[in-house]
Simulated assay, not measured.
Amino acid sequence: MSRPELIKEEIAGIAEYVPGKSIEEIASKYGFHPASVIKLGSNENVLGPSTKAIESMVDHAKDVNIYPSADASELVDAISVYTGLPVENICASGPGMDGLLDNLMRLLISAGDEVIIPTPTFSYYGIAACANGAVPVYVELNEDYSLDTDAIMNAESDRTKVIFLCSPNNPTGRLVEEADLRSILEHTRGLVFVDEAYIEFSDGNVAHLLNEYDNIIIGRTFSKAFALAGLRLGYGLMPAWLKAEYMKIATPFNISVPAVFAGIAALSDADHLKKSINCAIEGRDYLKGNIPFKVYDSQANFVLVDVSPLRSKDVTVSLLEKGIIVRDCKSFRDAGDSLIRVTVGTAEQNKKVVAAFEDASKLL
């Protein structure tokens, strides 16, 4: 027996989030041993986490009978050192940056409020906003995947509460130009959320704008460069006035003790972070130079491949049949049917990816 009438009306129109395929799923479907499957569909760090983070997590596992600090203050202090921002501008969040988004939408959105989302981009912005009664206003990116700032500004209304910008953008890998961001910040009466999940792999960030604007929020994660995706750990950088309001509704104790201290240790391991960044930069250059289709410039740990005139579905399946998981971008709004997102792997994995795309190109 089901009782759908009990579910909020806002939920009915939400499309379910589509995650990347798992190793177990592909191994079972295509008859591979799980260890032979190459998973490059979820933008995970292929080097794995820092040994310091693992050791710290294990050391603090014995303390899981005790609640963590309500606001993860130890981790916030470490993030303050890492970012150079005062603790008054920092909120730790779990699960991952998604928890930050959920809390912000709970804090900001009333039924009928609008959010502006340039597409194609990460789909969870729309899910979190719609679940709280927001009306999403989608604005397509320019043909080269840069922001159409005029279209974003023209889409704003007196109901606009939040504009979502992803930098580097998922799935395109393109950074938001600071000049464009400044124009939007100065134009809007709402808040601008900048998702910097992949920022460590890029040429710059916009955290310094917190010193100039009182309507910017920056979301970050430990899932990518710090390789702690399984711990679901993130944080937000925001004006002090907003943090004071945010903490009123933030779920207390939402980051486990092992995750808090693993995050602190990961931030302290500069060598491992540098290796992860170098791996991504070298790998994406190799993929761009060798995949026999159009590959867009990227500032993230993935590249976007346009396989037209072939369809992304067909090419993705051809790679899956070789035990290589990549991401068909068809589930991204306004991404079309020829784009594939490929996480940067190890040097050996990248060579196999190139060879698989070379085989796929023979379908032309």
Rank of each mutant, 00 (worst) to 15 (best):
K248L: 15
L141T: 03
K29V: 11
F332Q: 04
I325C: 13
F302K: 02
M247V: 13
S28I: 07
V354Y: 04
A240T: 15
I324F: 07
V344M: 13
G323S: 07
D359R: 06
E114M: 07
K224S: 08
L320R: 04
A240I: 13
S2P: 03
S331P: 11
I199P: 00
V58F: 08
I11T: 12
I324T: 05
D328Y: 08
S223V: 04
F201C: 03
V137N: 07
N278Q: 13
Y138E: 12
I11D: 01
A70F: 15
I277E: 12
E348N: 04
G204Q: 14
S2M: 10
G263S: 14
S183A: 15
R3F: 07
L242A: 12
G41I: 06
H187F: 09
I163R: 09
K294I: 14
I152C: 04
P49V: 06
R311T: 08
E5G: 03
E245I: 09
L267G: 06
E212M: 11
G99D: 03
K29R: 15
H187E: 01
G96R: 09
T251D: 13
I116N: 08
L185C: 06
V135A: 09
Y246F: 15
K330Y: 10
N301V: 02
V206Y: 11
E358T: 05
C329A: 11
L319A: 06
L209P: 00
G204P: 03
L75R: 05
E143L: 13
L287A: 12
A129T: 01
Y124W: 09
G133A: 07
Y125A: 06
T251R: 13
I38H: 03
I199E: 01
L209A: 07
R159W: 06
S308R: 09
V81H: 09
V354A: 02
P68E: 10
K362A: 12
L75M: 11
N45E: 13
N43A: 11
A360V: 06
K275C: 08
F332A: 02
K39C: 01
S50C: 08
N170V: 14
E9V: 08
